[in-house]
């Protein structure tokens, strides 16, 4: 599982350019799937279970987004330096001195024009990427090419660290749940979605196409257990979190109940999540067509949207268990 996570997190696929990660995931899930396809926005849709269910069988969508935050080149100056803008929530304080890798494999480093005071936070407008080019003509990057953080996976035992843990950890949970899900009476669609970081766009279109009866997302949430963080009840190692609310969505109370009961019946630890900012694919799923009852299983993750996002391995394993337990039996909301 850790090896697969390493492979997933060391793949570069910013929003809108998910082909690389999609191929890594496809290779894993193809032997496990009853049906697999890619839609117009690049979502990878994987069915497990009967395609035309009986009356009791529910069509369930499980979404994990495979894109990651990144950068996109907006100008190559006459000396070969690359100006850029951000894809998704990239903060400048995370970028100073960082290394990135472009989609075509070219590495680059980030720095800034001189600041008024060395302690100031640089603005994205003042920053540039240096790929070692000496002139515009010499620069291997063109306007519109995308890059993501370059940072190797780190195994600290229980704690695992990587870039793009958001949301490759959700992808891992989905893949492992699919592997462990021997059979299901439900028509389950694992959707590895695109463009979540720019506004849950892949989930919106794939949910429209699938028209599920219910669904949930698998995504990371914030944390409250490092110095100075207060009044947020989520800690690493205390189990996956069942989302009640986030910045964009209120989970369906019936889905919360279903998750809580399933976790308790199977002795799986869980936390209750009320997140103030941010949202997940579930928001888009909820409002599609005539509406979908949705929820979210969150994997607590420290330092979200930094190049070193940290999760707890036990939480990951429990998230897999909970996902499987939810899907292996008929669902009655």
């Amino acid at each position: 599982m850790k090896q697969l996570l390493q492979k997933l997190t060391e793949t570069f696929s910013p929003s809108g350019y998910e082909a690389a990660i999609r191929e890594v995931i496809r290779a894993e899930v193809e032997p496990l799937a009853d049906e697999i396809r890619v839609d117009a926005l690049g979502n990878l849709i994987v069915r497990k279970g009967p395609s035309t269910g009986s009356e009791q069988a529910k069509k369930i969508m499980v979404a994990a987004h495979m894109d990651e935050i990144g950068l996109i080149a907006s100008h190559i100056d006459e000396n070969g330096f690359i100006r850029f803008t951000t894809i998704g929530g990239v903060y400048p304080q995370m970028l100073m001195g960082a290394r990135v890798r472009f989609y075509n494999g070219i590495p680059g480093i980030l720095y800034t024009e001189p600041l008024d005071a060395p302690t100031d936070t640089p603005s994205i407008e003042k920053m540039f990427i240096d790929v070692g080019a000496k002139s515009r003509a010499d620069c291997p990057i063109k306007i519109g090419e995308v890059a993501a953080f370059e940072r190797p996976f780190l195994d600290l035992g229980d704690r695992l660290v990587a870039k793009s843990m958001d949301d490759r950890i959700g992808c891992l949970v989905a893949i492992e749940a699919l592997r462990a899900l021997k059979s299901t009476p439900n028509e389950v669609y694992f959707v590895f979605t695109t463009q979540e970081e720019v506004g849950t766009r892949g989930a919106e279109t794939s949910a429209f196409g699938l028209d599920p009866d219910l669904g949930f997302s698998l995504d990371v949430t914030g944390w409250g257990d490092t110095p100075g963080r207060k009044h947020f009840d989520i800690a690493l190692g205390k189990g996956p979190a069942i989302k009640i609310k986030d910045g964009g969505m209120l989970s369906d109370p019936r889905i919360i109940q279903w998750m809580v009961k399933t976790a308790e019946a199977n002795g799986i630890p869980y936390q209750r999540e009320v997140l103030l900012g941010g949202t997940t694919d579930a928001r888009a799923m909820q409002l599609v067509r005539a509406g979908v009852p949705v929820g979210c299983i969150s994997i607590p993750c420290r330092y979200v949207h930094s190049p070193s996002e940290m999760v707890d391995y036990n939480d990951v394993q429990n998230a897999v268990k909970l996902t499987v337990a939810l899907l292996e039996n008929s669902v009655e909301l």
Partner: peptide, 16 residues
């Protein structure tokens, strides 16, 4: 439902 957070009820009932 959910007008105060997302206009969710109106979007979905109008569609349905």
């Amino acid at each position: 439902v959910q007008e105060e957070v997302s206009l969710g009820g109106a979007f979905t009932s109008a569609f349905g």
